[in-house]
Amino acid sequence: MAAIFTAGIVAASDLRARLTSVNLPVKAGDRWGRTVQTLVRGALLVALVLVTEPALAHTESGAINSGFLSGFAHPIFGWDHVIAMVAVGLWGAFLGAPAIWLLPVVFPLVMAFGGALGILGVPIPAVEAGIAASAVVLGLLIAFKAKPPLWIAGSIVALFAIFHGHAHGTELPAAANPFAFATGFVLATGLLHLIGIGFGTLVRWPAGTYAVRAGGGAIALAGLAFLFGIA
């Protein structure tokens, strides 16, 4: 028992050391930079916990586990969703405070509204095209370094969030455990935003700005590929 306890302590110390070694290039006294760094470290820890396969003595993991995993995997294994979620975080970081946290708050809220419309059977035209268009528009806004007023940025993100939410919502009633599914996909969406924010903090340096804008261009191109059915 003591050996297992000691091994656990060693593993925890090792994990802590690895997480604290994740250092974004943050200048001294940069409060927002340190905030983003802490959020990114937290996101990595949550992602590690979620993707780690537990050692189960019994293989029947149950509806809750399968519901959570399928919900968690839904945004991650849909590349059109992934690039749009990352783009939201990326653009938020590009716009700076308070957009850096406002957009990841607005997106899940409006996405859930879109999801509710999907569950209630309210049709929205061209959902898949809307999802692909979200990647194109957000990617272009990043590539061209667009910095509109906060309410316009929030409205653009909210508009596209409805399409993403609707796509999730139509699949929700069929899930084994809708609560676990909803929890999984909301968490996955938030983590993808944080990944985008983490990458977006590179804009503090000139070379990083080019990298982020190039990332925006790549997202827009990928969105075009989804829009025209190439990918």
Binding site: R31, W32, R34, T35, V36, T38, L39, G42, W101, P104, V105, V106, P108, L109, M111, A112, F113, G115, A116, L117, I119, L120, G121, G169, L172, P173, P178, F179, A182, T183, V186, L187, G190
Partner: peptide, 29 residues
């Protein structure tokens, strides 16, 4: 009492709101 903690709590609140909204829609149907 740091910005990251307060932002983190707001983000968690937004996630809970999102889950509640979806569960409410499921409850209605």
């Amino acid at each position: 009492n740091k910005p990251w903690a307060l932002i983190g709590l707001q983000v968690i609140a937004a996630w809970i709101a999102a889950i509640s909204c979806l569960m409410l829609a499921l409850n209605v149907v």
